[in-house]
């Protein structure tokens, strides 16, 4: 089987990373890159002439035969890029989040309903060893009836007014909740099903247009309650740190980016009673190529597989929409001084 011919739109940090992964996976090759700024696209093409540089996604789609596209442009341009791919029947991998709001994403959702193409959205936290293992543990039912979940995602990133598109609401759609917290919203809906109601408190410290801190109280369709707290302006977190803490009637599960700790009263779901600790060394699984972090490789492998087989993969654009609806509801709640809001969908 010949390699998938991939084009990458947007050569920021994530675009470069996915370009490197898709270009070196068995089963895919990057043949074209698109970015409005000549610096990176020409620099790369100069060193690897098999990558054709273009100034826009549309020119790239017009002039090259592509089997798949990576959309890694700023958030506000995701929907139009997705629409261009659907129009040509080209499968796409889109960086998260889906859009600046669920309303902005509506034309893409409609177009995909009309003309489905394989697609995926880059909520990569699911592909982190520890969080993937937590999914197994939760699905085993060993915790019994679930009582409460709390989650945090923190990084020390912003301690003055931010520059660039992430801090303009029009282009980014929101602050730390949409940018980082959305990873946790995705994880929690993957673990526990849809959220039906939220209320939120947001705080702006360094940014003029978007939130730097967010606290969101969550209610799931299943009846589970919990909360999510996120910030990119806390101290002492050199990389993004995510923690999920889950209580059930039979015990307790704590998952971080590198460790899983399970404590249960009675053996259940294949897990022994007492304490089970799974460390990074226990959880590690090698990847065909590791650029930055293995979770990016795993999601890209899943996407290649979806394009090849035509079998739907998760998380896809519809999941991206569910996450967006939760974030929209949180923003609506904060605008009404924390009044609870129903999640659309």
């Amino acid at each position: 089987m010949s390699d998938l011919r991939v084009g990458v739109a947007g050569l920021g940090k994530m675009g470069l990373l996915h370009a490197a992964v898709f270009n070196s996976l068995p089963g895919s090759k990057v043949v074209a890159v698109a970015d409005p700024t000549p610096a990176l696209r020409d620099g790369i093409a100069q060193y690897n002439p098999s990558l054709q540089p273009f100034d826009s996604l549309n020119t790239m789609l017009e002039r090259t035969a592509l089997d798949a596209v990576v959309i890694a442009s700023p958030v506000a341009y995701h929907v139009e890029a997705g629409l261009a791919c659907v129009a040509r029947g080209v499968p796409f991998f889109m960086e998260k989040p889906l859009a600046t709001s669920a309303a902005q994403a509506a034309p893409l959702i409609a177009a995909l309903r009309e003309k489905p193409v394989a697609n995926m959205i880059g909520f990569m936290t699911r592909f982190v060893d520890s969080f993937a293992k937590a999914k197994e543990i939760i699905a085993s039912g060993c915790l019994g009836k679930l009582q409460r979940v709390t989650a945090t995602i923190y990084v020390s990133q912003l301690f003055k007014r931010g520059k660039g598109w992430r801090y303009e609401r029009k282009v980014s759609g929101g602050g730390v909740l949409l940018s980082q917290g959305s990873h946790v919203v995705d994880l929690l809906t993957w673990y526990f099903g849809p959220m039906v109601r939220v209320n939120a408190d947001l705080l702006q410290v360094y940014s003029a247009e978007i939130e730097d801190f967010a606290h969101v109280v969550l209610e799931f369709q299943s009846g589970l309650h919990g909360w999510l707290d996120c910030s990119w302006s806390v101290r002492g977190k050199r990389t993004v740190e995510t923690t999920i803490d889950l209580l059930g009637e039979n015990g307790w599960l704590v998952v971080t980016d590198d460790t899983v700790r399970l404590v249960i009263d009675e053996a259940a779901g294949g897990w022994p009673s007492g304490r089970t600790t799974l460390k990074a060394t226990d959880l590690f699984r090698p990847v065909p190529v590791d650029i930055g972090n293995p979770q990016y490789t795993r999601e890209d492998v899943a996407f290649v597989e979806a394009v090849r087989t035509g079998v739907k993969t998760e998380p896809d654009v519809l999941q991206g929409l569910r996450v967006q609806q939760v974030v929209d509801a949180a923003y609506a709640s904060a605008a009404e001084r924390g009044a609870p809001q129903e999640v659309a969908g």
Binding site: L16, L17, A19, A20, V21, N23, S24, V30, I44, Y47, N48, S50, L51, V289, D290, I291, G292
Partner: peptide, 15 residues
Amino acid sequence: DTLTDLALGLGVEAV
């Protein structure tokens, strides 16, 4: 390693 591996992945080893 991120830069070495990025260069390998992108096929720009000349860098």
